[in-house]
Amino acid sequence: MSIKILIPTPLRPFTGRQEEVEVDGRNVGEALEGLITSHPQLRNHLFTADGKLRSFVNVYLNDEDIRYTGLQQTPVKSSDTLAIIPSIAGGCCCCC
């Protein structure tokens, strides 16, 4: 099953500037696995070393937070859109 993942601007440097990535998967976990397989640099941004989704990364299936639908086990349909929603602090750079 192929679904669309929306990549937020801050993570686009790791997807070759793509705004959307098509991946295969039966559930959210498989879809995200597909995403980091095709774009390995994303792994560290989305997952901890032991493979857990980072707590400051919010993933939405359509308009619903996957924390309330079964996390990575949440099943997906081909019409679904998965979105990674980053926490953003402001309009100014803050790191260097």
Partner: peptide, 23 residues
């Protein structure tokens, strides 16, 4: 929504910063 902030190393860098003035 976000129980914790991202660690400094994983926030967007300067290169990714900037904002269109109207926004």
């Amino acid at each position: 929504w976000y129980p914790e902030p991202p660690p400094p190393g994983l926030v967007p860098s300067c290169a990714e910063g900037g904002v269109l003035g109207v926004l």
